[in-house]
Write a protein that binds this DNA or RNA. Structure first.
Lengths: 214, 214
DNA sequence: AATTGGACTTTTATGGTCTAATAGTCGAAC
DNA sequence: GTTCGACTATTAGACCATAAAAGTCCAATT
């Protein structure tokens, strides 16, 4: 699990890293279901059994890849959070980055995304966990904006939830509209613009006013 | 097609109406694919050929049912538009009604909605037409609000499109999250609340301010 | 002529089986 | 601890056979 003891000749546990890199590349290119464990093993010039030494199942390997992508995304988010700037700007930035992250994530297993009910429960939980993390961060941004007096946010959680929900909805509808087995980068750009536009609309509504309803 | 000449003993073309009523009831209960033409014919105590006398295909019968529902929805929308009241109120009202309409529509063929790509193109066009009509109406509401000075809306079409897009996104994600073959009324209520909440957020942002980005 | 029923044909959906591909295992070797 | 080659167990996909449902036709009734 942790960074194991001592490597012998090759650097450390580079094999694991190699596997993850190859998996990322191939899943990102062909999607989860079209890539076999043999494919990955072959690419790094090793036997399939080696993969199973590091990852108990194909799905857990896939999950590890997702986790990596997400971790990286969260990091760049937190970097952005560290820099000073208005809360609105940070949230807007979040949305832009999130959409790019979505683009990558989607290409990893677009086939499964499209009929969601086939996705294994534990992966759904993973996605849910990701969403929760993001909501916390957005909530943090909003809180900052409120403290700075930029805008008024009745219950922070309610707003951050709504924003996430809206963005997820846009992505969901986008996925539905896709035809081929790949995401069209041009269509994706439209989605991104739409997401930013809606975000601006909502942020605009938060500026200095007590929020309505419920 | 039009209200044909003279009926003999039974009232006018009541058969057509009967068919539509039965179809609405049964599709609404079991979904498009689970109801056969025989079922409908049986319910109104007539032969299947009669159905085909009035409707060339099952899909066109279904479409007629959809059209009815939609027409009714549009009518109640326009009624609401006629009454005086703020644009924001009208839009909020639209959203509430739209969600109810969605509930009905969904139950009509939930199975097909869930894997959208299987839906026949001509039905997709129908839904698109519905959406376009609604966008026009929302645009009209927004325009009214702008004229009244309630809020500022840079390009009306842009905003109405975005609003529709957001609502559609929420519905889309809702469908994805459904498990059984029926919509859980309680979950649906949550969706409706969410839609109203988000609508309020956006409307709030439109109040007296030049809209951002793009 | 408009409308309906009943027998008819054609198309589509469904379940089962069979096979090939792929996930996953095991023990030996280093 | 790490890797490999050969092994087994699952699963996904192709194929087909059968049942059900869509859709057609024509005679009969009004």
């Amino acid at each position: 699990m942790s960074k194991a003891s001592a490597g012998h000749h090759t650097g450390d546990h580079s094999t694991r890293k190699q596997i993850l890199e190859s998996a990322l590349r191939q899943f990102g290119h062909f999607g989860f279901s079209k890539v076999t464990m043999n494919d990955i093993a072959a690419e790094i010039g090793m036997g399939k059994a080696t993969l199973y030494y590091y990852f108990p199942t194909k799905e857990e390997l896939f999950q590890a890849v997702l986790e990596n992508e997400h971790r990286q995304f969260i990091c760049s988010l937190e970097d952005a959070a560290a820099k000073k700037g208005s809360a609105a700007k940070k949230i807007r930035h979040y949305v832009a980055m999130k959409m790019d992250n979505f683009y990558n994530m989607t290409n990893l297993n677009i086939a499964d995304f499209r009929n969601w009910h086939t996705v294994k429960p534990f992966l759904q939980e993973t996605y849910q966990r990701f969403a929760d993390e993001e909501q916390a961060i957005i909530g943090h941004f909003l809180k900052g904006g409120m403290d700075a007096g930029d805008f008024t946010v009745t219950p922070v959680e309610r707003i951050s939830y709504a924003l996430l929900q809206v963005l997820r909805g846009l992505r969901c509808h986008f996925l539905r509209s896709i035809e081929g087995p790949r995401v069209d980068p041009e269509k994706f750009q439209q989605l991104k613009q739409e997401a930013l536009f809606v975000t601006d609309l909502i942020l605009n509504g938060l500026k200095s006013s007590t929020c309505a309803s419920q």
